[in-house]
Every structure is written in structure tokens, then in C-alpha cells.
Simulated scan of single mutants.
Amino acid sequence: MARGFLITGTGARVGKTTVGCALGFAMRARGIRVGVMKPVDTAESQDAQALALAVGSTMPIELICPYRYPADSALVDAPDLAHIVQCFDQIAAQNDVVLVEAGRILDFADLAATLDLEVIVVVSNRPGCLDATMLTIQRCGDRGLKIRGYILCDCDPTPAVDEVSLRELVGPLYLGRMRHREPLAKVIVEKLI
């Protein structure tokens, strides 16, 4: 069975796809067969395609992203978790590692628990990020999830907090920092492989 990671964030547009692409590419460069999945997304998004391209996946986009909704839809039916599990199992059967990116539409904790995934949290370096990180820690703890680590992502050119604050909050789970418009640091990749 493939090892699995769920990449989630402390909010929207925090760098989850960027981290997923960089991590997937780095794993593939080391000879690891990497599958990717973004179970739920908007129809306009290119995130699933970017993830697939980063790892060289030739799997159908309907398998990688089985649920795509219009961005302007106010109410969507809940995705069928059993169908997501089937898609994940097909991807996992052909790979050593599967990276799953969870967005806002689907509860990341339910998905991680159902698929038995280790959680990687991308923390946006914006005002309020430490409170959002605490909520994520609590949500993972409530579900008994294994947190693999936290990556501080400078989403904007001017960071809101320093690294020390996040390190103090999450301790040894701190993986490192992704600077604004820079690639994922090698040290972060090595901690996850």
C-alpha cells in the first residue's frame, strides 16, 4: 500500500498546491512513484492539472479530481466519500506515495481519517495565522490524526509573523519555511521523504 499525505492549509490561497507540486516533483526526482489527488475543486481551477504535471502522472483527471464544481455555485451536494476512496485506491495501487490536496469544500479531517493519511499543514504567514494553526492542531487532535508537520508559507511579500512564533507553537512538527515566490527548501523535502 502506498504511503499517503494530505496537504491542507490554514486558509484559502496559502500555497497548498505549490507545496504539493514541489514535494511531488522532488519525490519523483528521487525515483519515487508519486500519485496525486485533489478530490474536490472548482471547474475553473488548474490545481489538479498542476499536481499531475509536477509528478508526471498520466492518470485521467476524473480520477485525480472526481468532483469539480462551478466557482460561483452557492450550494453543492456533498461529495461521495466512498467514490473518493475508490479513486484514491486506484491511484495508490500504482504508486509508492500519494499526495492528496484538500481544499475548502471537503473536510480535511474526515478525508485524512478515512484514507489514513499523514497531515502536512501549510500555514499562511498572514495576520491571524497562529490562531488558525491552533484550530488546525485541535481539529487534528480531535480526530486522532497524525500530523507530519507544518510549513510556514510567505504568501505575501511582507510576512506577518516570524518563524520563531510558529516553531514555539508546533515544536518539532515545524518543517520549515517557504519564502514568497521561492521553491520549497530541500531541508523540508528531506524531512518528508
Rank of each mutant, 00 (worst) to 15 (best):
P70R: 14
M134L: 15
R139T: 07
N125I: 11
L166C: 09
V36S: 04
L169N: 07
A82G: 02
V36G: 04
V36D: 06
G171R: 12
T133C: 09
G31D: 07
I120L: 13
Q90K: 04
A113E: 08
E163Y: 00
L53P: 04
E163N: 03
V97Y: 09
L99G: 04
S73I: 08
A112R: 03
D89T: 10
L63H: 11
D162T: 04
R167V: 14
P157Y: 14
E163K: 02
T114Q: 05
V164T: 14
C65P: 00
S124P: 00
Y150C: 06
A43F: 05
D107G: 01
F88S: 00
P66N: 15
Q46D: 11
S73D: 09
D80W: 10
I64W: 04
M37N: 10
V161C: 02
D80R: 15
D89I: 06
V164L: 10
N95A: 02
Y69G: 10
D156N: 13
G149M: 04
L115P: 02
R139K: 14
D41P: 00
F108T: 02
L166A: 10
P159R: 02
I91C: 00
G103N: 10
L130S: 00
P39F: 08
F108I: 01
T133E: 04
L166K: 05
V55C: 12
D72I: 11
Q90I: 01
K146I: 09
R143N: 02
V36P: 01
Q94Y: 01
L106W: 07
V161S: 01
E101C: 01
I105H: 10
P79F: 08
L145V: 06
V98F: 00
L130A: 04
T136Y: 09
L130K: 05
V170S: 02
E163Q: 07
A93Q: 07
I137F: 12
A50F: 13
A109G: 06
S73V: 07
P127S: 13
D154L: 12
T42H: 12
R68G: 05
A109N: 03
D47W: 11
A132Q: 13
P66K: 15
R30Q: 15
D72C: 07
L106V: 12
G103V: 11
E62M: 06
I105T: 11
Y150S: 04
V119C: 03
